[in-house]
Write a protein that binds this DNA or RNA. Sequence first.
DNA 1: TTTT
DNA 2: TTTT
Lengths: 151, 151, 151, 151
Amino acid sequence: MQGVNKVILIGNLGKDPEVRHLDNGASVANFSIATTETYKDRNSGERVDQTEWHNIVLWRGLAEVAEKYLKKGDSVYIEGKLRTRSWEKEGVTRYTTEVVGDQLTMLGGKKSSDDSGQSSNYSGGNQSNSQQAPAQSQTPDTNSEMDDLPF
Amino acid sequence: MQGVNKVILIGNLGKDPEVRHLDNGASVANFSIATTETYKDRNSGERVDQTEWHNIVLWRGLAEVAEKYLKKGDSVYIEGKLRTRSWEKEGVTRYTTEVVGDQLTMLGGKKSSDDSGQSSNYSGGNQSNSQQAPAQSQTPDTNSEMDDLPF
Amino acid sequence: MQGVNKVILIGNLGKDPEVRHLDNGASVANFSIATTETYKDRNSGERVDQTEWHNIVLWRGLAEVAEKYLKKGDSVYIEGKLRTRSWEKEGVTRYTTEVVGDQLTMLGGKKSSDDSGQSSNYSGGNQSNSQQAPAQSQTPDTNSEMDDLPF
Amino acid sequence: MQGVNKVILIGNLGKDPEVRHLDNGASVANFSIATTETYKDRNSGERVDQTEWHNIVLWRGLAEVAEKYLKKGDSVYIEGKLRTRSWEKEGVTRYTTEVVGDQLTMLGGKKSSDDSGQSSNYSGGNQSNSQQAPAQSQTPDTNSEMDDLPF
DNA sequence: TTTT
DNA sequence: TTTT
């Protein structure tokens, strides 16, 4: 069955993105974003923050947008899908779950005295999924390319 | 600002889709789906059903999928965006809000004795928004085409 | 069937919210937000903005958050459901589709010299839908209250 | 910042749910669902299925719904949030990413001769997040309970 | 009616 | 590792 696998996140980058440019011309960006949920503890009644970290992967046009415009602390909206990869390390199979983004909207960064672009927003994809460059990070061959990556 | 305009629905078709084939080769399907929410009434304690109807519009490949595979009573997952159109009738401006779908997944229809394909599901789009035919219902020219329609 | 009726929006308020405090103690906020999508026109190759306006309704705690913290131009994330109401005007039945929000996150307003709170964000609900005040805008009786409103 | 951490899945259970009843009265269900995406390979032109498995966790009322109504092969809609846990095994820290569901809708199972309830759907939560039992799987104390689990 |  |  064709299922649905959709993730929607709004959070802040923990570090600047790491972007690699592959031999075949494709780019891929990796970074983490934190989403924080605040709730009131049942017993103490105190407010507690719970932060969750998400590994984000962006391809092609979106990777280039990330390289040019995203930095540590920035707030972003990301829509994508879950993908779990397995890899070997010291004879042990490990698993990493990532969010492969297919839409990116910048929501502005943290306050700073020299930040004049705080509200400048950019959408790496767009809602109509047109044929613009960033939306092409969604092509099927993404999958075969992933096999080339030295994770 | 590049915003986000996203709708996610699971519901049942109220009637068979109406599909038109435009002169420029594009197809467009229109139908309504019902989403029902059940809640317990505060005063009576009784369960109450509240049904909401949504006007769905599908273009091109997705319209053709609708034409071939969808019929009254079928259950579908639809992802898309909100669009409000205005039109004149008897000198009064009226507004209609529709969901322009860019992903469709069939979830099976209602029970019937001769329905052997109840669980056969089909996704008119796909999560990676590839360049397959159905996903091309998302091209920008959708907008100019809409002006040609005799609503 | 219990369906799914979900809307996710990121956009800017066109005006300050209008908030009413009902006799039964509940509050309700109404405002519109714009979501803008930019695409490249097929023929001219020029970038075109298409703006969509959405009518937002917030109840109780979320209405009070809107009253205190939201103003014209602010950027917000809103999650909710579609609801279409009908009403009579001059003998004609008209329909309005609204988004009844059950989660609100402030994403910051536009740049201005005296705006020190630009990045201060607040979530009127929270992801775990806890029992905090704002989350109680989601109680079932919302439905009966709506009938009391002089729309 | 209060972020957004939302996952929406439609897929099929790989096995029957495992449900535990904790000493404090809470229940927790664990199972995996598969979402399959079909795309056309760039080089071969052949259709390729890519299946992703997701670890689902449901609490309280939703866990009890899962225990009563869900079984291997069933198709479900699940809405929830991502949570990554770490644990030690043989001196190595491992990570598991799960989807903690706060809404569940049954979409029907696979065909079987004795399955008359194939289309009977049930929503363990509801869209308005009311105070009904299932929705209380969302209370803040979920977090402290999780520490009690012998994962 | 917003925003870039 | 972020943010408020």
